[in-house]
Design a protein around this nucleic acid. Structure first.
Lengths: 347, 347
DNA sequence: GGATTCGCAGAAATCGATTTCTAAAAGGTG
DNA sequence: CACCTTTTAGAAATCGATTTCTGCGAATCC
């Protein structure tokens, strides 16, 4: 393993000072004569010079990498977000460090701290912790933070969120428009703001329609992996079917859970959407691959990644008029898992 | 934005030298009196000292981050791999930088180069480029590389691969055991070694059984996103059905494509597995959420992540007897998309 | 033609840590 | 008590870059 060649090696070989080499190789605006410039360029190429970005960073204090903390990358919703962030990062010659908090606030805190130690100046986070004091402390020390997806109760933090309330409202509205009157809402524990918002939207739609809300909430602990949500969906569907008059339509708080609901219904010989309609929430790509294809409320995940990447970069560059907060709008994606209610069905 | 406190600030306040502060705060084995030690610790805590890992890294030349390059994170197979890598990284206080090459060799090369510039000493890569010269050049300069998933024709590179040939063989075997005799193989372009291996396994099984191979290969360009594979599956299924005597079972070279095949069949009113059985390849979690649940050949993706992380860390620590290469074995996951062939079906 | 500016190169300081050297106390021995 | 070893602290070098400062020679100006 040979030693790597540094700027000083090039300087020695070219018989110039390392200052001149630096100016040439880093495209400084400082004037250097063409003779020396081309000589240095030639020698650098000949000796396969690779800049040491750590040395550069120590001096300039610009890390060129942005951090991302999300619950888990195995949720396709988050992988889309990340893909968007990386697209912007690549265009701007930034790198992305992704950390999965796995719904563990301790991991989340550890990751934030290490990122600050690594001199990362920009962070995009879907936080699962209620405590923002750590974030605020680091922000005072110069960390740029964008909270995505999960609302944080804190004005000072730039947020990019979805209009979850509207999404919940739209889902219920869609089922109402199809003529359903007994519409169940299957949700995981209402402990995150996003979930409470979807729930609120559902309630508003039902209230406006003068119909009763049928909510089944999972009390179990946070599901740690994608199949956990699926299982929750199965359990909640079973509970709903146990009611004296089961719903004719079920709205699930995310797509994974909707798959679980559909799976449980089909296992019991109940056709979807023939007998019971199902609508999901998120709009992950897999929805179109299942049978029946899933009708759902799409959150623009990739766009969220793009947007948060752009805004973060603006912040890091010290933009004059910073974006304060953005709310992205949901979109109904009609596929085939929700259909007209049977008017002939018993009340 | 106040200036961050450095080791020198602590030294000044504690009225000691920065050398002593460094020895205390970095748990050096160098002896420091208890009196000074506790004093320094107290002052560091009071002033909220955060170590600058860039300064440390410049001196020690140990970056504590490992790089990962994969085609795309939206493929759940790769997200599982990454989750495994990160688990090992976290346990060892490493960070993970993930880069999506998006099947673009240029991006891949760029990413490798930047990682080296960032002094990353360990890289796990699922390479889509045929040219390993860049990798080899950096390896000579001290980069530790593990190639996963995609075989690279190069002895010097540690590889962790799946036994794709056996997986292909097992898939065909399973369908044969179910009594099928006309078994189609739907594959995306046979331009990657892994795909050729699966194909070879399929051919071997068919040959042993004395049955003809029915291969449909997509000639279209690489599918860049997850739904691309799905669409390819639909197209290939359509082609197979156009044959004079369509197959009674279809083996797809990955799960996404299998979903596409099933989707196309069901759209045409063909029941799965009633009329045609389908088997996939990869074993992503979604397979259990679809209807019917997908029978498939499982590649231990998470385990691959864990294993590659461990081996890479061993390499970076200069393990005496390095692991050369590992081959992971596939496993049949029987769900419901493949069933007994109808003996009554027309020949 | 002398004073001043400009262009260009190098010396040296700097970023924040670690680590090697040097050296001053403290402790032990005959 | 003189001598030697140990313990512990600080001074200074170092990692690889950037950047400020300094200065020399040439061009420009009155």
């Amino acid at each position: 393993m040979k030693k790597t060649v540094t700027i000083h090696d090039i300087a020695r070989i070219a018989e110039v000072s390392s200052a001149t080499v630096s100016r040439v190789l880093s495209n400084s605006s400082y004037p250097v004569s063409d003779k020396l410039r081309s000589k240095i360029l030639r020698i650098a190429k000949e000796h396969n010079y690779i800049p040491n970005l750590i040395g550069k960073q120590l001096k300039t204090n610009a890390s060129m990498t942005i951090g991302v903390i999300i619950p888990t990358i195995t949720n396709p919703f988050y992988s889309s977000v990340i893909l968007g962030i990386e697209e912007i990062a690549r265009q701007n010659h930034y790198h992305v460090i992704v950390c999965n908090s796995l719904h563990n606030p301790e991991f989340e805190g550890e990751y934030i701290k290490t990122m600050v130690e690594k001199q990362i100046k920009g962070l995009i986070i879907s936080s699962i912790s209620k405590d923002v004091s750590l974030l605020k402390q680091f922000m005072r020390a110069g960390l740029n933070v964008i909270a995505i997806d999960q609302k944080i109760d804190e004005d000072e933090i730039t947020q990019i969120e979805f209009n979850y309330e509207k999404g919940g409202y739209m889902a219920a509205q869609h089922l109402l428009a199809l003529g359903h009157t007994r519409i169940g809402y299957a949700t995981s524990r209402l402990d995150r703001p996003s979930r409470r918002d979807i729930h609120a939207g559902y309630l508003r739609a039902m209230e406006e329609a003068g119909l009763p809300a049928l909510v089944e909430e999972s009390q179990s602990e946070e599901a740690f992996n994608s199949t956990g949500e699926f299982d929750v969906g199965k359990r909640l569907a079973a509970r709903m079917l146990a009611a004296s008059t089961p719903p004719t339509a079920i709205f699930a708080c995310n797509d994974m859970m909707a798959f679980g609901v559909i799976n449980e219904l089909m296992l019991r010989g109940i056709s979807v959407p023939g007998e019971i309609s199902v609508i999901g929430f998120d709009g992950i790509e897999f929805g179109k691959m299942t049978h029946p294809p899933l009708t759902t409320i799409k959150q623009p995940d990739y766009e969220m990644g793009i947007l948060s990447g752009k805004i973060l970069l603006d912040m890091m560059r010290g933009d004059e008029n910073p974006t304060l907060s953005v709310t992205l709008q949901p979109k109904l994606v009609e596929r085939a898992s929700a259909a007209q209610a049977h008017t002939s069905s018993p009340i």
